[in-house]
């Protein structure tokens, strides 16, 4: 009894010294808590877009694509170029950012911005198709070590290509683009300041894409054929499903989602050389927490990791990176299969 009390006191002392308790008190301030949670949900949605592609590819193709994070980064870089062309301040741009909020102009501008993100993500589709058909398809039957080595090589190649094309400096949209979006009142209408409208935009668009993804897999013929292939590839083949075509489609979809996530994130921040690696690592944590290959698990895992990491920026910034991994370790120890089942049986 005495020993455990001393241990508790010691633990408390460590927490006090490290400022964790003070950080927790800060986090629990209503405004801070709401803002950090909303930011975490925004980050969770982006993580979901990346992890969804990763988990679908893993669940159906049985390939852990280490280059997936670079597709996310590539999406951001491509969006920097496409966005600069479509909504930049240059004379060639389709639409310049409005200087102040006007319902029609501002929402039209957001529409063009989303169009830029969609175009950027679509540009990644043929890249995904080439990756699957040329590089990954020949080694499906080989040991997974080959797949890891190959996709790691693709990671490095894409990262180098990014640097070759855009250089090592971060790429971002014009500041006026961000300002134009933030001028649209969103959370301010709810009396909440501190959450820029860019966050709202990312959350809403990602939510729509996420809902669309679930609809695709649960209601459309193609989506259900993909699920059937994930559940039993051989039986699906015996019913006329072409595995090659399905795998290419899945890989293209994964590339689209990663690219779209990168493009949407560019609205908020700059594309930079390291963003692909950190996205890959966190996405991996997400799919381990949610269940390898589970789309529903990816949603829950992404929101848990996104919110937790944002909370930790207030509680104890030095633990921000470690917190997601701590969750992953706990899940692996308590529920090794992840919070949800495997891909295919349920979307």
């Amino acid at each position: 009894m005495v020993t455990s009390s001393i241990a508790l006191l010691e633990a408390n002392s460590v927490l006090l010294q490290s400022g964790i308790i003070e950080g927790l008190q800060n986090l629990l301030q209503p405004d801070t808590f709401i803002v950090q949670t909303i930011n975490g949900i925004r980050f969770g949605f982006i993580l979901f877009l990346i992890a969804a592609g990763l988990t679908v590819i893993l669940g159906i193709l049985d390939v852990l694509n280490l280059a997936h994070g670079e597709l996310y980064a590539l999406g951001a870089y491509v969006a920097a170029s496409v966005g600069g062309f479509l909504v930049g301040e240059g004379t060639a741009a389709i639409m310049a950012p409005p200087s102040s909020f006007d319902p029609v102009t501002s929402f039209a501008f957001v529409g063009v911005l989303i169009l830029a993100a969609l175009i950027s993500a679509l540009i990644l589709v043929p890249i995904g198709v080439v990756m699957e058909t040329v590089f990954i398809r020949p080694i499906y039957e080989r040991d997974q070590v080959y797949q890891l080595v190959l996709t790691f090589a693709l990671l490095l190649i894409i990262a180098n290509m990014i640097e070759f094309i855009w250089g090592s400096n971060p790429q971002k949209l014009d500041l006026s683009t961000k300002t134009a979006v933030n001028d649209i009142p969103t959370f301010e209408l709810l009396g909440l300041s501190g959450v820029p409208s860019i966050v709202t935009l990312i959350m809403v668009v990602s939510l729509v894409v996420g809902v669309g993804l679930f609809y695709f897999f649960s209601k459309t013929k193609t989506g259900r054929i993909i699920r059937a292939t994930a559940i039993d590839r051989e039986m699906a083949t015996a019913l006329g499903v072409s595995p090659d075509r399905t795998f290419t489609l899945v890989f293209a979809l994964g590339a689209f989602l990663a690219g779209f996530g990168g493009a949407m994130e560019l609205v908020r921040t700059a594309a930079n050389p390291g963003m692909g690696e950190s996205a890959l690592v966190l996405s991996f944590v997400v799919i381990v927490v949610g269940g390898l290959g589970s789309l529903r698990g990816a949603v829950v895992g992404a929101l848990v990791i996104g919110v937790l990491q944002n909370w930790m920026t207030v509680v104890e910034p030095s633990l921000e990176s470690a917190a997601p991994f701590a969750v992953m370790v706990i899940v692996l120890l308590v529920k090794p299969e992840g919070l949800f089942g495997t891909w295919g049986e349920r979307t």
């Binding site: 259900r224 699920r227 059937a228 559940i231 699906a236 295919g344 049986e345 349920r346 979307t347």
Partner: peptide
Amino acid sequence: DRKLFTGM
């Protein structure tokens, strides 16, 4: 072994 598509 039937091989039905479960979850459907």
